[in-house]
Amino acid sequence: MSFELIRNYRSGGTNGSLRYGSEKICHTIELPWKDNQPFFSCIPEGRYLLEKRITHERGFHLILKSVPGRSWILIHPANDARTELEGCIAPVSELTGIGKGINSRDALEKLLEIFEEAQEKQNHIYITIKEKSAINILERVKKPTPKLFRKLRTIGLVLAAAGGAILGAPITLPAGLITVAGYLTVGASVLTAVSQVTVDNEVKIPPLPEVKNKGDASPR
């Protein structure tokens, strides 16, 4: 079992959700993706070895090993990716915007507790980073459908029923009407299917004040 970071990319920053197995640990914030440029970009997606370390400046935190083209990529406290990160990952308890969150130190403490529990069960611990759109189709179907697409799904079901009723009518109908009914049924089926697998990717931003931690600038 490994940690999993699911990212949601935006031009102003990268928000994410950090999990261990089926347990959601916290949110994350990072810099936007800028072709892996040191100091300006989040790191590439992939699977990385995760280790715990301690320094006088940061105390206990985590480090990702063997990141392509980067060094000293840490998971450490920060509440604003733009001003406090240079490529690292910051856990936050709640998101307040794109690349922004609050209560980062509390989130890190929770993460470290789970990491220590994982260490008791396995020698090497990894984190897999991937984009939210990479969620498989079964996971999408299980997720809530946005309000607009719920309405479209309902319309699709109604149209499909109407087309089916015309095609199954016990009386002879004009050929043109039969053709229209066929197109109607196919189109309605596509509309329903697309609506069903559409999920809401927007970040829910709570009306909370932004709190910044001092002295949490990332080294890389």
Rank of each mutant, 00 (worst) to 15 (best):
M1C: 06
M1I: 01
S2N: 13
I6V: 08
G12Y: 10
N15W: 02
L18N: 02
G21N: 03
E23H: 05
I25S: 04
T28E: 15
E30T: 01
W33L: 04
K34L: 13
D35C: 06
F40I: 04
R47G: 12
Y48Q: 14
E51A: 05
R58L: 11
F60Q: 12
H61A: 01
I63V: 15
L74V: 08
N79S: 13
D80R: 11
E84S: 15
G87P: 06
G87I: 02
C88Y: 15
I89D: 07
P91F: 06
E94W: 04
T96L: 12
G97Y: 07
G97S: 13
D106L: 08
D106Q: 14
E109D: 09
K110S: 07
K110E: 08
L111A: 04
L112P: 01
I114E: 07
F115E: 05
F115M: 09
E116R: 06
E117F: 09
Y126N: 04
E131P: 02
S133D: 11
S133W: 00
A134N: 13
A134L: 03
I135D: 00
I135N: 00
I137E: 05
L138S: 11
L138R: 11
K147R: 09
K147E: 08
F149E: 04
L152D: 02
I155N: 15
A162D: 03
G164H: 05
A165W: 06
A165F: 14
G168I: 04
A169M: 11
L173P: 10
P174G: 03
A175W: 10
G176L: 13
T179M: 07
A181R: 10
G182M: 09
T185D: 08
V186R: 06
V186C: 03
V186A: 15
G187Y: 10
V190G: 10
Q196T: 15
V197H: 00
V197D: 03
E202Q: 08
E210F: 03
E210S: 13
V211M: 14
S218I: 02
